[in-house]
């Protein structure tokens, strides 16, 4: 992930960036050195911080960093479905290929939309390894593995956008666009969960919504994707103690009725195995 391109790109359009940064040049220098030691996971937001310092309130560097983070996730999803749909013999014809084509098209539209919004500040597409270093070795030859990875990407996407919403509050139009992508990812997740349920097996009891932590039937390798989804407390209110029908709201309903956000760091830790 060529995240340092962001600073290079800004130098192209803003020759004065180093002047702007001058009082903090030492800080930038130490950040760049620091960058060689820290994991990629922490970087987009650190860069966002630097851009903020350089531009103050005029150019929302944090918004750009968030959009590049979102773009990276959309690149991942778009290439995944594009490859899957193009792999002959992977996806059953009819409803399955139609649904996955719909999802593929949305993800490619999200990539195009975010690239347009970012212009020359858009990060380049990383090289992906959809087997995640061999964890999902048959992802493009076993339909059930493909659907499992798809579900994990969509549920992660929902959590990722949710986690960045407050960082976009300074730009209402971008916030609205991000929310409009967020709910589309949730629609995808719902449909993929239904597709997996229809396949039976480990996913036979899967619901369109998330019940507790890791209801996927995939195993502990995706625990991080669902960490915290078993939360039953919202803004100090214990949902499990509220009145439902014939008693309190059940523990399952309490976790299903609220989807939880993930931090960028947690999301990047999930997707890094898929990035070469």
């Amino acid at each position: 992930m060529n995240l340092f391109n962001i600073i290079d790109e800004i130098e192209n359009v803003d020759q004065e960036i180093h002047e702007r940064l001058n009082p903090r040049r030492a800080a930038l220098k130490s950040f760049l050195n620091f960058g060689t030691k820290v994991t990629v996971a922490a970087m987009p937001f650190a860069i966002g911080g630097i851009l903020n310092k350089a531009y103050g309130q005029t150019v929302p560097g944090d918004v750009k960093a968030i959009l590049n983070f979102a773009l990276t996730l959309e690149y991942l999803e778009a290439e995944f479905y594009t490859k899957g749909v193009a792999t002959s013999g992977l996806i059953p014809s009819g409803a399955a290929v139609a649904a996955l084509t719909t999802i593929r098209d949305h993800e490619n539209e999200h990539v195009a939309f975010l690239k347009t919004a970012l212009g020359s500040d858009a990060v380049v597409k990383p090289t992906f390894d959809f087997t995640a270093g061999g964890a999902f070795a048959d992802v493009f030859s076993n339909y059930d593995t493909f659907l499992a990875v798809a579900q994990v990407f969509e549920d992660t996407g929902v959590r990722a956008y949710k986690g960045q919403a407050t960082g976009l509050m300074s730009n209402k139009d971008i916030l609205t666009a991000a929310l409009n992508i967020h709910s589309v990812e949730a629609r995808h997740a719902s449909h993929l969960r239904q597709m997996r349920r229809a396949r039976g097996g480990a996913a036979a009891n899967l619901k369109p919504w998330i019940t507790g932590a890791n209801d996927t039937g995939i195993g502990s390798s995706v625990d991080a994707v669902y960490a915290g989804e078993d939360n039953k407390n919202q803004a100090g209110v214990d949902i499990n103690q509220l009145n439902g029908v014939g008693g309190k709201i059940s523990a399952n309903a309490a976790t299903e009725s609220f989807d939880e956000p993930l931090t960028a760091e947690a999301v990047l830790a999930i997707v890094n195995p898929f990035i070469k």
Partner: peptide
């Protein structure tokens, strides 16, 4: 922001419902 996050936690569940009902 905390209310925005709460709205976000609920809207994706509504979207999951919407997708199911539509299907």
């Amino acid at each position: 922001g905390k209310y925005l996050v709460l709205a976000g936690k609920i809207v994706s569940v509504e979207a999951r419902h919407a997708a199911l009902i539509r299907d």
